[in-house]
């Protein structure tokens, strides 16, 4: 986790959301945050230039949805252990300035599709992105979750309601996307559901929808997680039975 990751704020400003100053706990953290912010402004300008080159005829950018390991999750789209080997000087500089590998990810909503990429990968290679056309998405799981959690730096008595959303879909050509959205991400996504006409034929559900059963089992992180838990419980049970048998046999 990077305490001074300015990615969300920089992208929010690109969306037209005014700067929300969050005081950092120490002057050193504040300074580090500002240094990273300046470096990221320059990087993102270059990234945006590259994104605009991907747009087709009549295609317009609607807004951006930032995702980070600090606010979202590293489970679904961060890759294997979030590892990455930079190939160009630009990406090396980015990693040095941001202390981040694949953590910062960007979803670009256009009037025709969603473009998704991991920033460092995209800096290295402009062809490293995923494109999800709205007319290729029959359904999207967009589910709200809430949990009470202690306030930052507070004792358990004072609790905050934490909100997050699951975003999950499979395109007709078999591309699966899964991610957890923050409450702010969720607001942007909901607004897009209302204001992007091409998204209106997408069905909103509260369960994962897949093209076939194979994908539902093997292309679904939640099923995988459940299966892993069940398997772990079975192994534990077998171990307990073996232990009890050995103990009783010994007696």
């Amino acid at each position: 986790m990077i305490l001074t990751n300015p990615f969300v704020e920089v992208v929010n400003q690109m969306n037209g959301i005014p700067k929300k100053y969050e005081p950092k706990s120490t002057p050193e953290l504040r300074q580090k945050y500002q240094e990273r912010q300046v470096a990221l402004y320059i990087t993102m300008q270059d990234v945006l230039t590259k994104v605009t080159q991907l747009l087709g005829d009549g295609e317009k950018i609607v807004n951006f949805l930032p995702m980070t390991n600090e606010d979202n999750t590293a489970a679904a789209t961060d890759g294997i252990m979030g590892m990455y080997a930079p190939q160009t000087d630009e990406s090396k500089e980015y990693i040095k300035a941001q202390d981040s590998l694949r953590g910062n990810r960007l979803m670009v909503f256009t009037n025709q599709r969603i473009i998704f990429f991991i920033v460092v990968e995209f800096i290295d290679d402009q062809s490293q992105y995923f494109s999800y056309e709205y007319d290729q998405m029959p359904a999207i799981k967009f589910k709200k979750h809430q949990m009470k959690a202690p306030k930052k730096g507070d004792i358990v008595i004072n609790q905050d309601q934490q909100t997050w959303y699951t975003l999950d879909f499979e395109t007709k050509d078999g591309h699966v996307f899964q991610e957890f959205l923050t409450a702010d991400n969720g607001k942007v996504f909901k607004q897009n559901l209302l204001t992007i006409p091409a998204m209106s034929q997408i069905r909103i559900t509260n369960h994962a929808t897949r093209n076939n059963r194979f994908d539902l089992i093997f292309g679904n992180i939640l099923t995988g997680f459940t299966a892993y838990n069940v398997l772990a419980a079975l192994i534990l049970l077998l171990m307990l039975i073996s232990l009890l048998t050995a103990l009783l046999g010994g007696a």
């Binding site: 400003q13 005014p18 950018i61 807004n63 607004q191």
Partner: peptide, 21 residues
């Protein structure tokens, strides 16, 4: 930072903070 406005959708793109009517 501002993006080249040629690539921004006009009608259907209220900024995320601008309240929708």
């Amino acid at each position: 930072m501002a993006l080249d406005e040629t690539y921004l959708a006009d009608l259907e793109t209220p900024p995320a903070t601008e309240p929708l009517d």
